[in-house]
């Protein structure tokens, strides 16, 4: 073979390599396409694992009508980060992980990953993770939301999440009596 490879030939090689690449194409509710590593998708999501095993993966984009493009982008981002760039515990060639406990606190990169999300994006991601059966991502996102509630009074929580109080005064008083310990010296 020539040392000097023509551009066309190299282009061809690239196409072949791409076809061999183990990725799955996912389509969001608004029709955007995303590519994700097949191995990571199968490992992190029970639903995608089932679809891959069951052969219901469409080469032109598997429809995920439940998930908007923003949430799906985050899901794919999470999967790819998991597959590629975990500096401490690259799990690439081995599925053995150190996460044997039911839930270990989020790793540094997972923290950063959820920290940069807006509230809306975070809630969407919770839904998407739940829909796709991604246990770890669901834990990490829910953990993040719970951290926003930690150490806060109900009024502060309402403010953070923009929750409207629809109780009557009497009802509120009744619940406060019921759960007096949670409002002790409030």
């Amino acid at each position: 073979m020539e040392v000097d490879k023509g551009k066309g030939e190299a282009e061809e090689t690239r196409k072949v390599a791409e076809a061999d690449r183990d990725t799955v194409t996912l389509k969001s509710s608004d029709g955007k396409l995303f590519e994700v590593s097949k191995e990571a998708a199968a490992r992190l999501s029970t639903v995608l694992a089932g679809m891959i095993a069951g052969g219901s993966i469409d080469d032109n984009g598997t429809d995920l009508k439940q998930i908007g493009s923003e949430a799906l982008e985050n899901v794919v981002d999470y999967c790819n980060k998991h597959a590629n760039s975990i500096p401490s515990a690259a799990l690439i060639s081995s599925s053995i992980s150190f996460n044997t406990a039911p839930f270990k606190e989020p790793e540094e990169w997972e923290r950063k990953f959820v920290d940069r999300l807006s509230h809306d994006a975070l809630f969407d991601l919770v839904e998407a993770a739940n829909f796709l059966g991604m246990e770890r991502l669901l834990d990490v996102t829910c953990h993040k939301i719970s951290e926003m509630m930690k150490g806060k009074s109900p009024d502060q929580i309402r403010e953070v999440f923009n929750i409207k109080n629809d109780y009557t005064k009497e009802e509120l008083e009744e619940i406060r009596q019921e759960l007096a310990w949670a409002f002790y010296d409030d």
Partner: peptide
């Protein structure tokens, strides 16, 4: 905090 969420709404 979890228990007190019942007064949120």
């Amino acid at each position: 905090e979890a228990a007190s969420t019942s007064v949120l709404s």
